[in-house]
Amino acid sequence: MAEQVALSRTQVCGILREELFQGDAFHQSDTHIFIIMGASGDLAKKKIYPTIWWLFRDGLLPENTFIVGYARSRLTVADIRKQSEPFFKATPEEKLKLEDFFARNSYVAGQYDDAASYQRLNSHMNALHLGSQANRLFYLALPPTVYEAVTKNIHESCMSQIGWNRIIVEKPFGRDLQSSDRLSNHISSLFREDQIYRIDHYLGKEMVQNLMVLRFANRIFGPIWNRDNIACVILTFKEPFGTEGRGGYFDEFGIIRDVMQNHLLQMLCLVAMEKPASTNSDDVRDEKVKVLKCISEVQANNVVLGQYVGNPDGEGEATKGYLDDPTVPRGSTTATFAAVVLYVENERWDGVPFILRCGKALNERKAEVRLQFHDVAGDIFHQQCKRNELVIRVQPNEAVYTKMMTKKPGMFFNPEESELDLTYGNRYKNVKLPDAYERLILDVFCGSQMHFVRSDELREAWRIFTPLLHQIELEKPKPIPYIYGSRGPTEADELMKRVGFQYEGTYKWVNP
C-alpha cells in the first residue's frame, strides 16, 4: 500500500466541504435556525453545542446559521458558553472563530407547556436576519415526558411559513410498544414523516454505516452471507464503567431499553437485511423493517440478565456495585447486563442465532459485530482449526478484520490463527472521521433520513421486546451478580454456547 501524504486539518475539512456542497440537498446560502429545546441540560452542553461548534469551526454548516437555545432556566448566552465550552476542545488559535460562533447564538427562556412562551420564541426567531423565511431545525434534547406539549406548541407557534421545518427526537422513544405508539401517533398528527428525525446516534458511527458497503459492494461476501456458512452472529456493546452516581436515570430504563432495543437491534438489521433497491432512505429502511418483521418476540429462556457488584480487589469506582450508587433505588432489580438470542425467521437466516450482548462495568470498552462461520467440513488438521470470524469493530479503534487459519512457519503443516486486517487509523491517516452527532446533524440539514429511525421500524423493535420488558417488570427477577471489570455473568457464556457459538479464547485482536 502506497504511503499517504499527511494533510493538514484545513485540507481534510476542505475535502469534506467539497463532498457536502456538491450535493443538491445542502442549501449552503439559505438562512437556517437550529433550535435546541432543553438548552440547559446535560445532553445540550456535552453533545449538541459542542457538535454545532465543530461543524461551524470546520465550515460545514450553511453560511447563515443561527443557534437558539430554549429552556425553562433563566440563562444568558454567557451562561450557555460557560457550561458548554469546556466540552468544545477549542484551541487558543480558534479564539476569534469561537467569538464568531457565540455571536450567532441567542437564548430564550420559557415554559414547555405555555403557548405564550412559544409565541415569544417565534418572535425572537423572526427578528433574526431573514428569520421569518429561514429553515428551522428543532432538536428535542428533553425528557420524553414533555415531548407531547413541546411538539404541539412548536407546531402551533414556531413553524417557518416559507422555509422547511424538521424536528429531531432523542431516544428513548417511549418505554414499550404502547407508549411508543402513543408518542408516534401524537407526533405524526403534527408533522409529516419526512419532517421527523428520530435519532439513534449509533447509526451515525462510521463502521455501522460501513456495514452496507461491506455487504453490498464486495462480491466475495454475497455468496457466504447466509445460514449455510454463518453459524452465529454476535452483536456486542461493552462499557468498562458503571453508573457513577447517575444511576437514578438509568434505573428508569435499564440496559435493554438503553442499548439493546435500539443500538444493537439497528446493527442487527444492517447485518441481516436484503440488498435495498438503492441507497435512498426509504429503500434502506424498507429492508430493515422486513428483517424486524421476521423476528419473533424474545423468549425468556433465551435471556440472561445481570447486575454488577463491587470488586473487592478493585480501586475507586470498581469497588462499588450498582446498588451502592446513592441515586439507585434500594434493592433495585434493574439489569445492567443483558444477553438475548433472537432468530430472523426467513430463508437466508433460518436457524442462525443472533446474540445481542450489552452491559456496564465490564472488562473493556468495545462495540462490534462478529460473524462466526461454520467449521470446515472434512477436517484434515486433527481438530487444530478454529472457526473463521469476520469482525466489524465499531469502537474504539474502528477496524474490519477476518480471523482465519494460516500455516505456522516451519517444517510442518501446523495451522495457527491469524488475521486479515483493515484498521482505519492506519489505512486512512488523512481522513477526519466525523463524530456520530456531527454526521447525523449534517444529515438533518441535508434532509437525508437514511440513518434515522422510521415509525414502522420503531414499532417493530418495541413489538419484539415489550413482552419481555413487561414480564421483567411484573416478576422482578433478581439479576445474576457479576463482578465489576469482569466479562459479565458466566451464564451468558453458557447461553451463547448452547445456541452454537464457540468461544476459543486463544486469539485476541490487537490494534496495530
Rank of each mutant, 00 (worst) to 15 (best):
G69K: 04
W54M: 09
R198T: 01
D181N: 13
Y139S: 07
L235V: 09
R166I: 02
L55Y: 05
Q111H: 13
E63P: 13
G222S: 15
N126Q: 12
T91I: 11
L16M: 15
R57A: 08
R175H: 13
Q133H: 12
N135H: 12
L203I: 01
L183P: 04
I230Y: 00
Y107A: 07
I220W: 12
D251W: 01
R72L: 00
L130S: 15
Q28W: 11
R104P: 03
E239R: 02
F138K: 03
V150M: 06
A116R: 12
W164H: 07
V150S: 12
Q195F: 04
I154L: 14
T151H: 09
A39G: 02
F221P: 03
I196D: 00
I168W: 02
F26P: 11
G242N: 06
L190Y: 07
D79M: 10
I234K: 10
L75N: 10
L130P: 12
I187H: 08
I154M: 09
D30Y: 15
M125H: 01
I196Q: 06
D181A: 10
K89V: 09
S8M: 08
D79L: 06
M37S: 07
V146Y: 02
L183N: 01
V68K: 03
E99W: 04
S188D: 07
V169K: 02
F253G: 02
S188N: 13
H155R: 15
K205Q: 00
V233M: 06
E156C: 10
D194A: 11
L177T: 11
E148Q: 13
G38M: 04
Y249S: 04
I167V: 13
S179T: 12
S179D: 07
I154D: 05
R104N: 07
I36P: 01
G254L: 03
N64M: 07
H186P: 04
L75V: 14
R104W: 05
Q195N: 08
E93K: 11
E85Y: 08
G242T: 05
K152V: 10
L177H: 05
R104K: 08
R175C: 11
Y147I: 02
G14Y: 15
K238F: 02
N165M: 11
M207S: 01
I234D: 05
D176T: 04
I35W: 01
F250W: 04
Y197Q: 04
I230K: 00
S188R: 09
N229P: 00
L203A: 03
A217Q: 06
Y112W: 06
I199Y: 04
I255V: 14
A6R: 15
N126W: 07
R219D: 01
R57Q: 05
G110L: 03
G59C: 06
C158A: 15
E206Q: 09
F216D: 04
G41W: 04
N185D: 14
D251L: 04
Y197F: 13
K238Y: 00
T76C: 11
N185I: 09
R166C: 00
I234G: 07
A78M: 11
L183V: 05
F101S: 02
R166P: 01
L235W: 05
F237Y: 00
F253S: 10
I230D: 05
P223H: 09
F253A: 11
K82L: 12
I224M: 12
G110Q: 02
L7M: 15
K95S: 11
E156Y: 13
E156I: 15
Q11S: 15
V146W: 03
W53E: 00
F241C: 06
G242A: 06
F221Y: 15
I199D: 00
N210L: 04
L7N: 15
N122F: 08
W164I: 09
G41H: 06
L128D: 08
F253E: 02
Y249H: 04
A6S: 15
T10V: 10
W164R: 07
G248Y: 04
N185C: 12
G245F: 09
V12C: 15
I33G: 03
Q22S: 14
L140V: 10
A116V: 13
L98F: 07
E18K: 15
D200N: 05
D24W: 07
N105C: 13
D181Q: 10
A109G: 13
F21A: 11
W164M: 08
S188A: 14
I162C: 10
T145I: 06
G110F: 03
S180T: 04
P50E: 00
R175M: 11
S117C: 11
N135I: 04
Y249Q: 03
A231C: 08
V77Q: 11
C232M: 07
F237S: 06
L16S: 15
H27P: 10
A78H: 11
S106V: 11
V77L: 12
R215N: 00
W225K: 00
A44M: 01
A78K: 12
S123F: 14
M125F: 14
N126T: 14
I48P: 04
K95N: 09
R74D: 15
E63I: 12
N105F: 12
R104M: 13
E239C: 05
A134R: 13
R81Q: 11
W53M: 00
A90F: 09
N210T: 08
N153A: 11
I48Q: 00
L121P: 02
R72G: 02
F87Y: 15
A103C: 14
F34R: 02
P223L: 06
R175T: 06
F21R: 15
I15V: 12
H155M: 08
F26C: 01
Y147T: 00
E148H: 10
Y249M: 02
K238L: 01
E206C: 07
H201L: 04
P50F: 00
F237K: 04
F88K: 00
R74G: 14
Y70E: 00
N153K: 13
F216C: 00
T236M: 05
N153M: 11
C232S: 15
I167H: 05
L130G: 15
Y107C: 08
G14D: 15
A134Y: 10
S157E: 10
A25D: 13
D181T: 11
S73K: 13
D24C: 10
I220T: 05
S180E: 05
G14E: 15
L130T: 14
I220F: 12
A217W: 03
M212W: 06
G222F: 09
G131E: 12
I154C: 12
G23M: 14
I36Y: 03
P172D: 02
T65E: 00
Y202E: 04
N185Q: 14
A25W: 14
L43T: 02
M37I: 14
G14Q: 15
E94A: 05
T31R: 15
S179L: 04
S189Q: 13
M125G: 06
I220H: 04
N226D: 11
A141L: 00
K97S: 08
F56Q: 04
R72C: 01
G59I: 00
S179F: 03
K205G: 03
K97Q: 14
R246A: 03
G222N: 13
Y70L: 13
L177K: 09
N185F: 10
K89C: 11
T145M: 07
G245M: 10
F56D: 01
E206G: 07
L43F: 01
K238E: 00
R104A: 07
R9M: 15
N185A: 11
L211M: 14
M125N: 10
A78P: 12
A39V: 04
A44C: 09
K89T: 08
F88R: 01
E148D: 11
W164Y: 15
Q209K: 05
L98Q: 06
T10F: 15
P223Y: 07
S184F: 10
K45Q: 10
I48D: 14
K95V: 08
I196T: 11
R198Q: 01
R182L: 14
N122L: 11
A39T: 01
D58S: 09
G174K: 02
A127G: 12
R136H: 12
K95Q: 12
T243V: 11
M212F: 07
Q119C: 15
Y107T: 07
L235H: 03
Y70C: 11
A90V: 14
R9D: 15
L43Y: 04
P86G: 07
T236P: 02
